[in-house]
Structure formats: C-alpha cells, structure tokens
Design a protein around this nucleic acid. Sequence first.
DNA 1: TGAAATACCTATTAGTTCGAGGTATTCTCG
DNA 2: CGAGAATACCTCGAACTAATAGGTATTTCA
Lengths: 112, 112
Amino acid sequence: MAQSNPPFMSGVPELLLLRLLNEQEMYGYELGRSIKKVTEDAISLGEGVIYPVLHSLERNGSLKSKRKAVGGRNRVYYSLTKKGRDRLEKLHGDWRRIQGGVATAFGGTANA
Amino acid sequence: MAQSNPPFMSGVPELLLLRLLNEQEMYGYELGRSIKKVTEDAISLGEGVIYPVLHSLERNGSLKSKRKAVGGRNRVYYSLTKKGRDRLEKLHGDWRRIQGGVATAFGGTANA
DNA sequence: TGAAATACCTATTAGTTCGAGGTATTCTCG
DNA sequence: CGAGAATACCTCGAACTAATAGGTATTTCA
C-alpha cells in the first residue's frame, strides 16, 4: 500500500496558526486579525476556534507561551518549539498533497 | 461583515465524489479506485468514507441512485441532481477560497 | 457614563472521517 | 473442484474538528 491519508480537511486553522507563529510570537486575539490579513480576507477564524487550537498545541509541546502585561493588557504570547516546526512542516506537506490531488482531479478534464 | 466561513476541513471527500459523478454515473466501489486515479495517488478514500457520504448526499437530494445488475454483480449507480450540481459549485468555490487563502498566507513571505 | 474594543476563556453541539468489521457473489488459478 | 482474491455492498464506534454561543474583565474613547 502506498501511504495512509491524514485526516482530510483537518488542520487549516492549525496550519495557519503555526505558519504565523513561525515568523514571530503573537497572542491569540492578535492571531485572529492577522489571519484575516495574511489570507486577504479569504479566511477568518473565531476565537472559539483559535484558543482551543492554541491550547492543544501547547499541551502537546508544539507551542510555548509566556504572559506579558502590555499597556494594562494581559496577553499570552505563543511561539513555536522545535516540535512545532516539525508539525508545521508535516501539516504543510499534507496540505500540499491534498491540494495537489484536488487540483489534479479538477484540472484533469477541464470543467466549469 | 464580509462573509461567514464554511466548515473548514469538511468536504474534500464530498467534493471529489461530486466532481466525479458530475462527469458520469458511477458506483461506490468504482469511485474508490477512480479517486486514487484522478488524484494521481495523492488521495485515497476508504469505503467507510465513501458510502456514508454517498448516502447522506442522496438523503439530501444531491444524488439519485439506481440499481443495476451487471455481469452478476449488483451495483448502485449514482448521478448528480440539479441540487448536486449546485452543491458542487458551492463546495468548489469554498475550496478555491480556502486554498487561495492558504496559498496567500504561505506565499506572502516566502518560507521553506 | 456607556459603548466598543481588547483580551482571555469554555461548553455544547454538530459534523467528518477513520478503521474495523460484516455479508455475499464472482472470478481465477491450480 | 476448491481456495483465495477481487468485487460490491454495508454499518458501527471512536476520535477529532470546528462553529456558535456564551462567559469574564479591563481599557479606551466619545
């Protein structure tokens, strides 16, 4: 057998969060706006999606966090660990494969 | 507000199934092999994925089915209804948007 | 003062997908 | 003929995702 599939559509929120945090540390609320911006409004994630993903990513060691008080605000900044970078690469690879597969399926015989 | 997001990861199996059935009627077992082929092995769906999706698609009126006995085999052929074609267009649009958003997010600042 | 924005969080629900199983028939090959 | 592979259908249960809808508290600004 060739290879087993990753859970399919799973992971876009996780993928994007890891992608952004790989560039620079950020906090949850900020990530929400940032995702809208870097996807040019194509994707927007609610806080109810962002925070749980952040927490589970931290739990499994992909992210580390530190609290900072900035201008009277209490923020939790996240950044990638080595494991997080590995995870990012893996998810990105999965994504490219699926994306490529879908593109091929739709490109094969041109349709509307 | 701009627009609400479709459920994220959902829908690649459904999308591919609709895509294939839009070209020609097929039966479940056949669809499994066909998906592997048209995605050039990038994606393969187990029967435990295919049949439930087919059934739910038929339940909601996107697909219609007819039984045929072919060479002693009992097959259930599916084809798209109008509603199924609409559904395909919608899912395809969603997919393009998400795909574009991810591409932009990763393309914005080139990374490995 | 009061509303909006910032900033965090959780719980519930709904939906998807996966793997593992199950049945039955037909085909192929020794 | 007999055995096993392939065809062809199906369902169940577990695991996981993601969406909505809430909740708290502070700060900013009109």
